[in-house]
Design a protein around this nucleic acid. Structure first.
Lengths: 147, 147
DNA sequence: CTCTCTGCAAAGTGTTTGCAGGGTC
DNA sequence: GACCCTGCAAACACTTTGCAGAGAG
């Protein structure tokens, strides 16, 4: 089974277990999140779904993302421009590389921060629950453009 | 000369070099940013200054932060709760450790990410300009509280 | 049949901007 | 004296919320 198909089933299952109802809108949102390799914003998701579902409301997207986030099944990428992006395919913390020109976001597969996390915990006395590591720069496409 | 005094002079000097005028409001803002070990929000800064300067406007704080940010003399910490914090004492990227209960932010002195940055650049083809590394958790104070 | 979910519109929150008067250089 | 800066209030962008009707289980 394809990876994003699996993720879709997992999220839907988790919703069911929590007594949530499976509405068509909810399925459409989960479907996009499950294969969210493009790190869509709420508006991206809304636009995408409106193609087949013209009455879909932005509020519904927001509400469902809050819900799925509370189940730990989607990762929110806080964005400097105030437009958050979401990753429901890899909902655990992992490094992102972000182009400040075209806003493209790609995942990096490098570097576990577990050691550093432990060191920081000792240094500060915190119990570390979570982290985020983002690199900002210019992607090769944007660099190639002579603007 | 104390560290934050030095930072104050550096920022003021940089403003002068850029042809900006040194107003009392601006000095007050720079003074707080220069010793911003507490990582104040815009509202924190505004509140602090209003004690001696009751007519100080929020808009002025925002405008000055944009200006100083454009000179590279203050670091903006994007916050999940949408209330940004600022560090004008160490304006270069460095790891932060954030308590999700009391919102306290402290600096970590560990870990250079230069190696990782180079690896990510090779992996993705990006030219990396910047990064951010934040750990979220519970500080020892909040852990001690039986709430 | 019950109880949650949706769509709509209004309200909220943090930030930015237009304008006219005031202050720095 | 020229031009930038400030304070005020309105405008903005994103997100959240109240309500009444629709739909899942």
């Amino acid at each position: 089974m394809a990876d994003h198909k699996k993720r879709f089933e997992i999220i839907i299952q988790k919703l069911r277990e929590n007594g949530q109802k499976i509405t068509p809108q909810r399925m459409a949102i989960v479907k996009i999140l499950a294969k969210s390799t493009g790190h869509p914003s709420v508006e991206d998701i809304h636009d995408e779904i409106k193609k087949d579902f013209p009455t879909m409301s932005l509020a519904t997207v927001y509400r469902n993302i809050v819900l799925i986030k509370s189940l730990g099944e989607v990762l929110e990428l806080g964005f400097p421009d105030g437009r958050n992006r979401y990753d429901g395919n890899k909902p655990y913390p992992h490094p992102h590389v972000i182009c400040i020109k075209c806003k493209k976001v790609i995942d990096s597969n490098l570097g576990s921060l577990d050691d550093l996390k432990d060191e920081v915990a000792v240094e500060t006395g915190f119990k570390i629950l979570n982290h985020r590591l983002d690199f900002f720069g210019i992607c090769s496409n944007c660099m190639a453009e002579k603007v």
